[in-house]
Computed example of a mutant assay.
Amino acid sequence: MTSLHTDIPTHAQVTRLLTTRAPVAVSLYVQTRPDGSGDAERIELKNLAGTAVGQLRDGDAERGAVASVEEQLADLAEDDEFWRYQARSLAVFVTPEALTTFRLPNQLSRSVEVSDRFHVKPLLRSMTFTQAAFVLELTQGSVRLLEIVPELRPAEVSVPDMPSDVASAVGKSSIADRAPIRRLQGSEGQKVRMRQFARQVDQALRPILAGQDVPLILAAVEPMVSIFRSVCSYPHLTPTTISAGSGDTELIADARRVLDETHTEQLRGAWALFEQRTSQGRTATDIADIARYATAGAVDTLFVDIDATISGFVDEQTGAVEFRETGDAADYGVLDEISRRVWLTGGRIFAVRREDVPGGGETAAILRFAPGA
């Protein structure tokens, strides 16, 4: 499969990050350019690493742990091969024992956080609204799968066992072959062959799409649209279809329009549910209240501003919040901790910009039940 140099975290990887505890845990977010040389990004990483190491030393972290973190970040900065391939943001998570990176298609704000746990909230943006998509261009005479992300050229994905066209898929020299198919002839027989072709395409795609949760956008015309939709097993096929055969430029523009529409519809639906639940007494916008509800497993959906940082502590048992005016190496992000508890209790998280949070604050929540019910 052709890589577009993004590493979208899986659900299991996010869970691992959210549950990591260490005496020293550093989280860095670096803005990157897919078409850049990587030199400016390396300098930025070194600057953020220097800030993190300074905070660790000021916080009296164990000397050997600080040295290990510093060494791992320096090694990453000097890895020429790694910096050749970037997306729009780079997330780096490091403890004295290990370093993990994710190259993300979202443009995230630069930041450095030092604590006993990772600052994962910005990373959740890539899980909320994916910027990547697959486009399946499907006609009677050809088929191809493209992978797209912002600001990068689309890449054609190699799919083993993919049939090349309808005729070859059903062992005929032409789809217009008039030999009967179980006594079906003419246009009805052609549709049977197209369905056989579509089923083979779906089967070939399964190993490629297994475990993915990015949208699959179909580029086709009728009757192929209806036929493929009737056999498609991938759960993230978008309801909107785009035109096939219009050229790559228009195809990709149409696909990105579908992605934007999908994101808008997801957020619109969540806002509508928030308004409905507000009338039922099942929403909250106060951070301290939401922390308690999250600790009790009562939050169904959380909206959280990805750029907001609020330092403090959240009690493990009660969810009571102790706010701090300024953060230090002993503090952690309260919003991160709320997000962690919602994630681990099966809640949905919308990591969005502040203007997309109901009420215009740092966070808002839809509750599973009314308080006191």
Rank of each mutant, 00 (worst) to 15 (best):
Pro215Met: 08
Leu367Arg: 01
Asp331Ser: 15
Leu123Asn: 01
Ala320Pro: 09
Arg206Gln: 15
Glu41Ser: 13
Gly50Phe: 03
Gln13Lys: 12
Trp271Ile: 11
Ala308Phe: 07
Pro239Cys: 09
Thr309Ala: 13
Val357His: 01
Pro358Thr: 05
Gly211Thr: 06
Thr238Lys: 11
Ile181Glu: 06
Leu48Ile: 05
Ser246Pro: 08
Met224Leu: 14
Val231Gly: 00
Glu362Cys: 12
Ala320Trp: 09
Gly319Tyr: 03
Leu152Met: 15
Ile148Tyr: 02
Leu123Ile: 07
Ala65Ile: 05
Thr51Gly: 07
Gly359Gln: 05
Gln196Thr: 05
His263Asp: 11
Arg84Lys: 14
Phe134Tyr: 13
Glu250Trp: 10
Ala365Gly: 02
Leu124Thr: 01
Ser68Gln: 13
Thr249Val: 13
Ala284Gln: 03
Arg199Trp: 02
Asn47Val: 10
Thr278Cys: 11
Ala52Pro: 01
Gln31Cys: 11
Asp254Ala: 15
Tyr234Gln: 03
Gly372Leu: 04
Leu123Glu: 03
Arg33Tyr: 14
Ile349Phe: 06
Glu188Tyr: 10
Glu81Tyr: 13
Thr264Ile: 13
Val159Gly: 00
Ser109Asp: 15
Ala294Ser: 09
Leu18Thr: 01
Ala25Leu: 03
Asn47Cys: 08
Asp116Phe: 11
Thr278Phe: 06
Glu265Ile: 10
Asp213Met: 11
Phe118Ser: 01
Asp39Pro: 05
Val314Phe: 06
Asp39Lys: 13
Ser164Gln: 13
Arg117Tyr: 04
Val201Pro: 00
Thr241Asn: 10
Ala12Val: 07
Leu28Ile: 06
Ala87Asn: 08
Ala270Arg: 01
Gly54Lys: 12
Glu113Phe: 09
Phe118Ala: 02
Asp315Thr: 12
Arg153Ser: 15
His263Thr: 12
Met1Pro: 09
Gln131Trp: 08
Ile287His: 07
Ala87Asp: 07
Ser164Phe: 04
Glu137Gln: 07
Ser68Glu: 10
Thr20Gln: 10
Pro163Asp: 03
Val66Gln: 01
Ala12Asn: 11
Asp202Pro: 00
Lys172Asn: 04
Arg84Ser: 13
Leu73Met: 05
Arg341Lys: 10
Thr130Gln: 14
Glu71Tyr: 10
Thr51Asn: 09
Val170Trp: 00
Ala61Cys: 06
Ser168Lys: 02
Arg257His: 15
Arg353His: 14
Arg257Asn: 15
Leu56Met: 09
Arg368Cys: 02
Ala87Glu: 04
Arg178Phe: 14
Leu367Phe: 02
Lys46Glu: 10
Thr128Ile: 06
Ser233Val: 12
Gly36Asn: 12
Asp289Asn: 11
Leu367Asp: 00
Glu151Pro: 09
Thr309Pro: 05
Arg57Glu: 14
Leu367Cys: 03
Gln276Ile: 09
Glu322Asn: 14
Thr130Asn: 15
Ala255Leu: 08
Thr301His: 02
Gly372Thr: 04
Arg277Ala: 06
Gln212Asp: 12
Ile349Thr: 04
Val157Lys: 02
Ser187Gln: 14
Arg103Pro: 05
Ala220Thr: 02
Thr345Lys: 07
Ser230Phe: 03
Cys232Glu: 01
Leu146Phe: 04
Glu250Asn: 13
Leu302Ile: 03
Phe303Ile: 03
Asp336Gly: 07
Ile8Leu: 14
Arg103Tyr: 09
Val304Ile: 12
Leu205Arg: 00
Ala12Tyr: 09
Ile287Arg: 08
Asp202Met: 02
Phe369Ala: 12
